[in-house]
Each structure stands twice: as C-alpha cells, then as structure tokens.
C-alpha cells in the first residue's frame, strides 16, 4: 500500500519538477533554438519552438560581421588571466592562514571579506580617472587586474576553507616520516591541495567571465570581452535576433558547462563556506 502511494507521488512530483525546471530554463533553450533559425523565422508569428529551417548561418555571420572571435579571446584572457593572478597571491596567503594561524588571522579574513562588500560604484570614478591617466582604458591587462582584485577575497576564502580540511595529523606524519619542508610540499601538501585549488579556479573563471560592471565601463571596441560585446546588440537598430542568439549561445555555452561541473563547489564558494 505504502509503495503504491510512493510511486504515485513520485510521478506527480517528477512532473511538477520537470515543468518548473523547463520553465526556468526556457529563455536559454529559446535562445539556443533561435540561433539556428533564419532571421525571418526568428521573428515569425506565431513563433515555432523548433527552427523550421535549421541553419548555421548566424554563427558565421556573427564572426564575419563583428569579429566575434576577438571578443571571445578577450574573455578567455581576462577571466583566466585574472584567476591565475589571484591564485598566485592568494595561495600563499590562504596557506599561511590555514596552517599557522595567529590570533589576528580571523580579523584579517574578515577584513578581506569586507573589501568584497564595497560597491563598485563607490570607486568607479577614481578608477576610471586613474585608468584614463595611465592609458589603461579599453585595455585587457587593466581589466585583468581589476577583476583579480574584485575576486581576490573570494579566492582567499575558498582556498582557506579547503586548506583547513587538510588534517594537521597528516602534515605531522610527514614530518615524522622524515620529510623536509620542501618534500612535504611536493609529495603531501600540493597533491592534497590540488582539488581545492582547481575548484576555486573554476568558480573564479565563471565569476570573471560574467562580470559586467567593470567590463562595460572600462572597455570599448578593442578590449571588450563578450559581456560588453553582447551589450552592443542592445542598440535599437534592426532586429537581428537570430544573430544575437548565436552570439549569446556562444558566450554562455562554455561557462554553462563549467558551471554545471562545479555546482557543488559553487555553493561553498559563494557563501564563503557558511553553507556546504
């Protein structure tokens, strides 16, 4: 009796969950499908869910008309570059705080977090002026540094929570086993820390890829990553929806895949370890 009720219930719940899931996903699905339509089909009324005439033309057009690939490379360079920069200075810091904490460590962590709370508009004006003076406007390197600074607190925090989970016992065991500090690092610490560093990196790439305040305000045609490039489609002339969809699909596809892979770490990273 109980079994039958459970199965029935599962069918209802499953149906509801799929409907809700598809509704939430619909705008993305719609964008992907539209990218394979001709411009005419894209604005046809009534709309058809699947393209009546499948075409890849939009993807080629996006590239030939607006040098899409350059913006894609900008996005890759900026997001990966800022992440690597952040890791380079965050790994030692998180390491020191996790393994030789002092009474001040906690305050330092809190202070780092508080820098993340500062709204970007609060510093937009001076940063803009400084960048203008230094000739860093519309420059990939300048943006890379800004995004590194934006995400540095999250990176330190995430790494810290991962490093904290490496048991001190193991480090002591390595010392008892005769490992010098260098060997301890190579054979024990680094292999154990790699998974944590990797997921921190992943989350940070996602955040940097999607960052849209500084990229919109500090770049123009040359250094614009995809966020800013896509925004240029908001100008009202013409309804190139299929092309817009193709450009959007290309812009979100890689990060959607990365995001799906890292969803577990995401919770932890975004809540600073408060929810695991």
């Amino acid at each position: 009796m109980a079994r039958a009720a459970t199965t029935q219930r599962k069918i209802v719940v499953t149906t509801a969950a799929w409907i809700v899931g598809l509704l939430i996903f619909f705008p993305i699905l719609w964008t992907i499908l539209t990218s394979f339509k001709t411009e005419g089909d894209a604005i046809a009324f009534p709309p058809s869910l699947f393209p009546p005439h499948w075409t890849l033309e939009n993807y080629f057009e996006v590239q030939s008309r607006s040098d899409y690939f350059r913006h894609f490379v900008n996005s890759v360079v900026i997001s990966i570059g800022s992440t690597v920069l952040a890791l380079l200075i965050a790994v030692p810091a998180a390491w020191a705080m996790a393994f030789s904490p002092t009474p001040k460590t906690r305050d330092i962590m809190m202070w780092m977090l508080s820098t993340k709370m500062m709204p970007a508009v609060g510093v937009l004006v001076p940063i803009y002026l400084i960048f203008r003076t230094l000739g860093l406007l519309d420059n990939v390197w300048g943006l890379m540094v800004i995004l590194m600074l934006m995400n540095l607190p999250i990176v330190v925090w995430m790494l810290y929570t991962y490093f904290k989970e490496i048991p001190v016992d193991i480090l002591e065991a390595a010392r008892m086993d005769g490992a010098t500090l260098g060997k301890e690092l190579v054979y024990v610490l680094v292999p154990m820390a790699v998974p944590g560093i990797a997921s921190t990196m992943l989350l940070n790439v996602i955040l940097a890829w999607n960052e849209a305040f500084w990229t919109l305000n500090l770049t123009a045609a040359r250094a614009a990553p995809l966020t800013a490039f896509i925004a240029s489609y908001s100008s009202p002339e013409g309804l190139f929806w299929a092309k817009l969809s193709a450009a959007s699909t290309l812009a979100i596809a890689p990060i959607l895949v990365l995001g799906w892979i890292s969803q577990k770490q995401l919770v932890r990273g975004l809540t600073f370890g408060a929810v695991k």
């Binding site: 048991p167 016992d169 193991i170 002591e172 065991a173 390595a174 010392r175 008892m176 086993d177 005769g178 490992a179 010098t180 054979y187 024990v188 292999p191 154990m192």
Partner: peptide, 18 residues
C-alpha cells in the same frame, strides 16, 4: 622530529589519501 628516528601511529591514522 625527522632526526629522532621515531615512528608514530596517529589516532586518525594520518594516511596520505592520494
């Protein structure tokens, strides 16, 4: 510790997981 030629077995075993 390494110079003392002692071996230790920890409560948590402290095995290297990788």
């Amino acid at each position: 510790p390494a110079k003392r030629q002692l071996a230790m077995v920890f409560q948590s075993y402290a095995l290297y997981p990788h």
